[in-house]
Each structure stands twice: as structure tokens, then as C-alpha cells.
Amino acid sequence: MMTNMLSVLDTDPQGGHQPAAPSSLSETALFDAYSQAVVDVVDRVGPSVVRIDVKRGDGSAGGSGSGVIVSPDGLILTNSHVVQGSRRADVTTLDGRVLTARVLGDDPDTDLALLRVEADITLPAARLGDSKVLRRGQMAIAIGNPLGFDATVTAGVVSALGRSLRAKSGRLIEDVIQTDAALNPGNSGGPLVSSAGEVIGINTAIIAGAQGICFAVAANTASFVLGEIVRHGRVRRGHIGIAAGTSALPRRTALRLGLDQTHGAVITAVELKSSADHAGLLTGDMVVALDGRTVTGADDLVRMLDAGTIDRTVPLDVLRRAEPRRFWVSPRERA
């Protein structure tokens, strides 16, 4: 008993015992550092976060959400489900200015949209970071307008990386960030920010009834979509004319052929007179690689058929009756 007591007491010079010095000072310093980091990020990025109020085609008010200015001339990233197919929106800045913006492009497949402010002004812009360097446990700060409460800040961590999320279009959004930074309706389209003050994701979804499970489209996906919309007015994707599903690759076959993957994309249908049909692909073929990149499922195949493959002839490696075959396909732009 005395030993336990002595472990938490200090001995004074007169032989008496005094309570050990509390660690509150170090804890206070730690919490102050965390708070200061959040404050610094909000001061830097907060002015670039806007409220978006959508206008319907008949001029009536639609929904609202958040957005983030990503260039000083007024380019704003938000969610596709925020703009809801509209062509105009009112944008309210942190300092209270209400500006009109038009929708430059809308990509439901990634739940992203790009707007441009019509006024000839310079606006504070946030910088898109590299989401590939993120690590689980890293600080994540969400800024937005949940439930109409402007300029709301919540903080948490990056809970997981590389998640997939089903978009309203039915396509899987790849490389989604999971965070426990609290999100609510109205946060959609706002930025998820790192401690370095860079936008690492665009907040997009929550799971109803769950606690601390929220999602953001990765910044690298947002950068790709932004570039495609600026150049082409839309996101261009390749199409070879097949339907496919994900299927397990027999372990014995993988070992025999020296393949590291455990799954591939099995072709379930081939469109008549399509690129795949002309190449000689058949129902039942398992796609294991496209243009030298490993395909581990149907979603990999869809993701890899990006703008860079359009009007090129690229190799498609398949297994037909457990034997490797290579075909050459020429993806066309998907309508």
C-alpha cells in the first residue's frame, strides 16, 4: 500500500511527502497547439468557402450547399447533387457578398460540379493538395454551411483511405476519403482540409444513423474533374462496348501465370459492332489488365477507361478458358 502511495508522491527535503506535480501544463500546451493548428487552417481557408443557393430553370429557389473557391478568378468546386442539374446559382462569400455563378460542368459519376462566378473580381482561393500522400489518423477539418449555419467548422481525422462510394449515376466513385469530422446536410460541396491548409477532399456524403462515418471525394479526383471540365466542358471517358462484373481469379491459375491479383473483370456482354466486338472479345473472358495496368474488377476497368484512352489503341489482357490472351481495343468517347 505504501509503495503505491509513494509512486504518486514526491518527497520534500524535510522527509515529508507532497503530491506529484500535475501534468496539466503539458496537456494545456498540447491542446493549445491543436487548437491553434485548427484556427490557422480556418483563417487561411475559411474565406474561400462559400454558400451555394441553387436556382431552378424557372427562377425559383432550389437546394443549398457549400463550395470552395479554387482559383482567384472565381472557379468553385462543389457537389453534383448540390447543383441538381441547374445552370445558375447564387454564391455567398464569407464577407457577405452575393454573387451569381454559372455551372460550367456537372459530373454525376464523381458527384462533382464546377461553377464560375460571373463578376470580374478577384476572390480568395484555396489550394488543392495531393490526396495520395494522406495517411490514416491525419488531422482533417471540414468547413461549410450545414443546415444553413454559415462558416461552420468541425475537426477530426482521416479515418480511412481508398473507399468506394456509389454515385447517384450508379457508378462507383473511387479513392474516397472517410473521415469522422462531423458533416451534416449543407456541408456537401465544402472542403475537407489538412493541417497544412490544403484541400484534400470535397465533402460529399454521410451514412444516415451512423456516428462519425463521413466521406469526401479525394482532391486528386477533384483536380482531374476540374481540368476536364475546363478543357472540354465535361468529363470525357472511354467506352469499348462491354458489360462486366467482378469475379475471383482461380488461385491455381494465378499461380501458374504469375499473377498477383485475386480478382478480375469478367465480360458478361459484348455490344455488337463495338470496339470490343471488333477486337474479338467474348462473353466469359476475364480482363486482368488494360494498357499495362492491373484490373481487379469491373470498377477498375471503368476507372481506367479515362480520357487518356480515347481514340488510342491499347492492349487488353484477358484470360480465356484460363489461358492468357492479348487483344487490342480502341476506346471511343462515352456518350
Rank of each mutant, 00 (worst) to 15 (best):
M2D: 13
L6D: 08
V8C: 13
P13T: 12
Q14A: 14
Q14H: 12
G15H: 11
G16I: 11
H17A: 13
P19H: 10
A21C: 08
P22R: 15
S23I: 14
L25Y: 11
T28K: 09
D32P: 00
A37W: 10
V38D: 02
D40P: 01
R44N: 01
G46I: 09
R56W: 11
S60H: 12
G62R: 01
S66M: 11
S66G: 09
S66I: 13
V68T: 05
I69F: 00
I69E: 01
S71A: 14
D73A: 01
I76F: 07
R87F: 08
R88D: 00
D90N: 13
T93P: 04
D95I: 14
R102Q: 15
R102Y: 14
L104G: 04
P108W: 13
T110Q: 10
T110C: 09
A119C: 12
L128H: 02
D130N: 07
D130S: 00
K132T: 15
R135W: 10
R136F: 15
A140G: 01
A140P: 06
G144P: 02
L147V: 07
L147M: 11
T152S: 10
V153L: 02
V158P: 04
S159M: 00
G162T: 01
A167M: 03
I173E: 01
D175H: 13
I177S: 03
Q178C: 01
T179C: 00
A182E: 06
P185F: 07
N187E: 05
G189K: 09
G189Q: 04
P191A: 04
V193T: 05
A196F: 12
A196V: 10
G197S: 02
G197W: 03
V199A: 08
V199M: 09
I200Q: 06
A205H: 03
I206F: 06
I206Q: 03
I206Y: 05
I207F: 06
G212R: 10
G212E: 10
I213D: 02
A216K: 00
A222N: 09
F224Y: 15
V225F: 11
V230R: 09
H232M: 08
R234D: 07
R237A: 05
R237P: 06
R237C: 07
G241N: 06
I242Y: 02
R252L: 12
T253G: 06
T253F: 07
R256I: 12
L259N: 02
G264K: 04
G264H: 05
T268V: 09
T268Q: 06
K273P: 05
S274E: 06
S274F: 08
S274I: 10
D277Q: 00
D277S: 10
T283Q: 15
D285S: 06
R293K: 14
T294W: 08
G297H: 06
G297L: 08
D299V: 11
L301D: 03
R303Q: 10
M304H: 02
G308N: 06
P315Q: 09
L316C: 09
D317E: 06
L319A: 04
P324T: 09
W328C: 06
V329S: 05
S330M: 14
R332I: 14
